[in-house]
């Protein structure tokens, strides 16, 4: 049996204004893997994440962390928030301090660590996110991409078991988006589980080990990217497009350019390799 770090069972949540954001959702996040939660706007991704951290309490259903039901007393909540960190979508609503250094020190200090440990962790988080040179800058003078990295450092300094990122690449330029994903690849190496939400199918397809598709407060599909993104009906129900790699790959097979039944390419390089080494080129040489 696979090992799950976070589980949601029959989760339902209604906002005070009457919006039912989650409708009996089931989901299990595998440990130490890269998980992407895909869905269009309003599918309930952010609401789900706030449950994983105990900010929202489900109307019905349960949330489990490490196989144990989450309880909502003060001590358990602090323990949960120590282990599950959320990087919010808008950095300006997460950054509360005008100083980058103080901002990052907030989380680890709340964990009751010694000053020296906190300083070490702040330094390490800044190194990992590449923001050492921003230490003496005020947060309001940073660019959007820099703010984003500070918010990730905020959570990294708490050294959680699960790092959840809400739309980490939204509004980022391609270069910084790529750097952010590479940072996640680095974080996962020491066993941290990384979960991100996105509506960018190409990103999810190339990056994730496991994918959940959400629509209207429910999980309507899940699996490894190859499987999920070959399911046209599923993607249509979720208002998502097919990744362009899958489209191009299909077309090349249809045109007889590459052999059928090949495994799907996960990135541009893999696709090119297929064309160059396994392709049947009928065009000019």
């Amino acid at each position: 049996m696979a090992d799950y770090i976070l589980e949601a069972e029959n989760l339902s949540y209604i906002y005070p204004d009457g919006t039912q954001a989650l409708k009996g959702l089931y989901l299990r996040i595998p440990r130490s893997q890269k998980t992407a939660v895909l869905g269009s706007n309003g599918a309930g991704k952010s609401t789900l994440f706030l449950h994983f951290n105990g900010i929202l309490k489900p109307k019905s259903g349960t949330v489990k962390f490490n196989g144990n039901n989450v309880s909502y007393d003060r001590r358990s909540l602090l323990e949960l928030r120590k282990n599950v960190g959320i990087v919010f979508q808008d950095p300006d609503s997460q950054l509360f301090s005008a100083s980058v250094y103080q901002e990052i020190s907030f989380g680890p200090l709340n964990l009751g660590l010694t000053e020296k440990t906190v300083r070490d962790r702040v330094e390490r988080a800044m190194t990992a996110t590449g923001i050492n040179e921003l230490k003496d800058k005020p947060t309001h003078m940073l660019s959007y991409g820099q703010k984003k990295r500070v918010t990730i450092a905020d959570i990294l300094a708490m050294e959680p078991q699960v790092l959840i990122c809400d739309e980490p690449t939204a509004w980022l330029d391609p270069k910084h988006a790529k750097q952010t994903l590479q940072l996640f690849d680095k974080i996962i190496q020491n066993g941290t589980t990384v979960v991100l939400s996105t509506h960018d199918v190409d990103l999810a397809y190339s990056w994730a080990d496991y994918v959940f598709i959400m629509s209207d407060g429910r999980v309507i599909g899940e699996g490894v990217p190859d499987k999920v993104f070959s399911d046209d009906a599923l993607l249509r129900n979720a208002d998502l497009d097919r990744p362009w790699l899958v489209d191009v790959h299909d077309l090349l097979i249809k045109k007889g350019c590459i052999p059928p039944k090949a495994t799907l390419p996960r990135n541009k390089e893999e696709l090119f390799e297929k064309i160059l080494y396994h392709g049947i080129c009928t065009g000019e040489q």
Binding site: L78, S93, Q94, F106, G107
Partner: peptide, 10 residues
């Protein structure tokens, strides 16, 4: 939203 973000960091 700030309160939410702060709470999630303990």
């Amino acid at each position: 939203t700030l309160f939410t973000a702060l709470s999630s960091r303990g």
